[in-house]
Write a protein that binds this DNA or RNA. Structure first.
Length: 542
RNA sequence: GGCCCCAUCGUCUAGUGGUUUAGGACAUCAGGUUUUCAUCCUGGAAACAGGAGUUCGAUUCUCCUUGGGGCUACCA
């Protein structure tokens, strides 16, 4: 049985790269009728954040991924939080220590840093060298008494090259002297990632490990550990990673970096108020601008909001907020570094499962092209059934605190239906906002007013006057009869529909952009339609 | 710096020792449809990083160069 896993560390929201890793592991498990495990790698006490696990879980569920073992669902191999598995790791740690395959160390952070600097000066790579004689239990007590940190390192066997067999990359050989004796137990008693991952993958029966290419250099170390512990070695697949347009991995840095550039570029902005918007001090802002520190995610978002820029989406929630739907995001990320082998592109989760083949995973890194994602989003929106879309729309509106939340499901469904060509849910929202604001809140687009209402001796205003009259008389205020009315007016006056529709649009929305005009008028209703025509007339024609 | 990975249109990619005038999608450009925006339709432009070698023949195999990326933590 194929058993895969996704093992995020709970340090923040689920990153789009993490989502892709999770997706491929999930896809393989589902394709093979195997199991998919969610395991939380929370061994770093300093980096963990209390809400992160729930955020990751929510994002995975939003994407449509489920797990057979892990938080919230349990399973026979729990607990699924590494922080709750300390005794298990200790058992194996003692085993290695007893067998002389691991040893204690007392180096301080400063000593280690000095060694590294020395190596750098000598232009050599720093590799921790095992002492001639290994510390004894007594040495440990002595070190503790002196307040020295106690860690445990794994003694990497130096006898033979280590060959990693990778599904994507074939065999990769590493010289043993390139692999340092790495720490497996930190001075706070927690295992390091390398140690915990090896033990958990064994105990949980993981057969296939698909992870980012950044882990390829870790794998020989993991294999040595597996051998020393008498464990199996799972199948490995080190996937290509997603890079961003300014070089490097697509990472969380992207958002702060974009914000920093924007603040620097717009030197007219008042830094004090930006800092205030981000709920940080001016000093903290300055330090951020000098690339010395990075404020919290919420501060970054607040400041971006304040100066009115869109940060590139990096975390899954960013995409939710921007109006992408999970079907599109999943489809698009699946096609980054993988393809079904035919010319299909738009695929459902079910189709992806059916088509998935880990042997078709690509070696080369890929660039995350938001244009193409947009196009995928439109395709998925236009072929999705309305009921499902209403659900996505609700979640989007809630996340953005939109006034459109006032709409009931039936109205939402109709508005979505009217906007089938939209790229994102945000596009739908912004086009429909006119229904959810007060008549007095309409902001008129100056250019559009000039062109459509005032040009040719107030041509548009005259049309509005006439429309006010005719619409006022209309008994059946349905899209259909509104259409009949407007078309007959056009025919009578021998003018195009645009001459009538555009002035009306401006009166109702303030701009030349709105959903189909007949439906817009119907949905707005007679009273509001007339009221808005009055407002426009009063403003531009008296 | 050291170690490792990678290299087809701007982007995601298909593909193979001769079947290729290298296929698709997004973006782009030119037309067209449409009451606005968006859609939609038609058409165009656009790539095998460079150099050696192997071979009758290389985009496909090998090596080198160049370029990109990763790792080089008591982070995962």
């Amino acid at each position: 049985m194929v058993i895969t896993r996704f093992a995020p560390s709970p340090t923040g929201y689920l990153h789009i790269g993490g989502a892709r890793t999770a997706l491929f592991n999930w896809l393989l498990a589902r394709k093979m009728g195997g199991k998919f495990i969610l395991r939380i790698e929370d061994t770093d006490q300093k980096r963990n954040t209390p809400t992160a696990m729930q955020q990751v879980i929510d994002d995975l569920r939003w994407l449509g991924l489920d797990w057979d073992e892990g938080p919230e669902v349990g399973g026979p191999n729990g607990p699924y939080l590494q922080s709750q598995r300390r005794e298990i790791y200790d058992k194996y740690l003692n085993q290695l220590l007893d067998e002389g395959k691991a040893y204690y160390c007392f180096d301080t952070a400063e000593e280690l840093a000095a060694m590294r600097q020395k190596a750098e000066r000598e232009k050599k790579s720093f590799i921790y060298r095992r002492p001639e004689t290994l510390p004894t239990k007594e040495d440990v007590e002595a070190a503790k008494a002196q307040g020295k940190p106690v860690t445990v390192r794994f003694a990497v066997p130096q006898d033979k090259p280590i060959v990693v067999r990778d599904i994507i990359r074939g065999e990769v050989t590493f010289a043993p002297e390139e692999i340092a004796d790495f720490i497996i137990c930190k001075s706070d008693g927690f295992p390091t990632y390398h140690f915990a991952v090896v033990i958990d993958d064994e105990l949980m029966g993981v057969t296939h490990v698909m992870r980012g290419q950044e882990h390829l250099m870790n794998t020989p170390a993991h294999q040595c550990l597996q051998e020393a512990l008498g464990f199996r070695t799972p199948e490995y697949a080190h996937m290509s990673i997603t890079v961003s347009d300014n070089g490097g991995k697509l990472s969380k840095r992207e958002r702060p970096n974009t914000l920093r550039k924007a603040i620097k570029a717009a030197n007219s902005l008042d830094k004090a108020s930006i800092a205030k918007a981000g709920n940080i001090s001016l000093e903290e802002l300055e330090s951020f601008l000098k690339k010395k520190t990075t404020p919290e995610e919420t501060s970054i978002n607040a400041m971006a909001d304040f100066i009115g820029i869109d940060l590139p989406e990096i975390n899954v929630v960013d995409f939710v907020k921007s109006g992408y739907i999970p079907e599109a995001l999943v489809n698009f990320t699946a096609l980054l570094g993988w393809n079904p082998g035919d010319e299909r592109e738009i695929m459902s989760l079910e189709e992806l499962i059916e088509a998935f083949d880990e042997k078709r995973l690509n070696k080369a890194n890929s660039f995350f092209d938001r244009n193409k994602l947009s196009s995928f989003n439109m395709e998925h929106i236009s072929r999705m059934d309305s009921a499902k879309l209403v659900g996505h729309m609700r979640r989007f509106l809630e996340l953005n605190n939109s006034p459109m939340l006032a709409a009931d499901d039936a109205l939402l469904e109709r508005l979505i239906e009217l906007n089938k060509g939209a790229k994102t849910l945000r596009d739908i929202e912004s086009k429909c906002l006119l229904f959810f604001i007060e008549d007095s809140e309409i902001e008129f687009d100056e250019k559009a007013v000039k062109k459509v209402l005032l040009k040719n001796d107030n041509e548009g205003c005259k049309v509005l006057e006439m429309l006010k009259e005719e619409l006022g008389k209309l008994e059946d205020f349905s899209a259909h009869s509104i259409e009949t009315l407007l078309r007959s007016i056009c025919e009578e006056k021998e003018i195009g529909l645009g001459k009538v529709a555009q002035p009306l649009r401006i009166a109702l929305s303030g701009s030349t952009i709105s959903p189909a005009i007949f439906d817009t008028v119907e949905i707005l209703g007679k009273a509001k339609t007339i009221a808005r025509i009055d407002i426009a007339l009063a403003k531009f024609y008296n």
